[in-house]
Design a protein around this nucleic acid. Structure first.
Lengths: 132, 132
DNA sequence: CGGAATCCAGGGTGATACTG
DNA sequence: CAGTATCACCCTGGATTCCG
């Protein structure tokens, strides 16, 4: 990459984890981050702590199962924290951990990119399909 | 083309894409970008044009089918371009399009994040599992 | 309200074999 | 070398039901 200096490339080469290697834990982590719900949950929590039901409403179309499953995995990975308020009925809030906050901007940027460049992608698809 | 409803015309005029809405095209685009191979292909092409076999070697563990399928979709979406050199045997090079170059740094950052924060994630997992 | 558990259909995925 | 084709399987992910 042109934006990387030779020194940076050397440093990268020495890095312990390499996502290009299938057996590397970071590759599996990248696979997990490449879950379609993770980016949406992270982006949704950018506004601050939110209740389970708030997340379900913001992220339209997510099933209870997938939302819960995604939040559990993200909690286990240290990206979000779960706070239970033992009222009746129960209230559960999720918020980003410090680690989660370091990842959120990156995923948010991808989500933004998808929204901003949607037209160009659709134009490219139309052009591609026309050449068949 | 069929007559657009008032709501459709408003959306058309404002070009508002919201990835939180399940039916929004940008959501489907985000789902596609959330493919585990897309981020690796984009990152691999950050070094410049590469041959099919180079990509297959760099991205360890990808099957021919998935690599080809991923490249086809990315080509259709205008993220990569495909150049065939009709030698014998055939040589095929892939490179990022200008549109692909705008997305690459974002996905590359996510891949980097996974490598850099791997240890913290593993520590979080260990802590989570210990509390069961 | 915020889950857990179960069932189950569908398709995404990989292995394999073949081709220009 | 760079695919295409076929098949079988697993696992995702939705629907439903029940619980604290």
């Amino acid at each position: 990459m042109a934006t990387l200096s030779a020194a940076q490339r050397r440093q990268e080469a020495k890095r312990e984890y390499d996502a290009y290697v299938a057996s590397c834990p970071s590759r599996k982590l990248l696979d997990r981050l490449s879950d379609k719900w993770v980016s949406l949950v992270l982006s949704a929590l950018a506004d601050g702590p939110q209740r389970y039901s708030d997340l379900a409403r913001t992220i339209a179309g997510v099933s209870q199962k997938m939302l819960t499953q995604t939040l559990r995995t993200m909690e286990r990975d240290g990206l979000v924290s779960r706070r239970v308020t033992p009222t009746v009925p129960v209230r559960v809030d999720y918020e980003l951990t410090p680690l989660g906050w370091t990842l959120m901007p990156l995923m948010y940027a991808v989500k933004e990119w998808a929204e901003v460049h949607m037209e160009e992608v659709e134009a490219a698809r139309a052009a591609y399909d026309a050449d068949l």
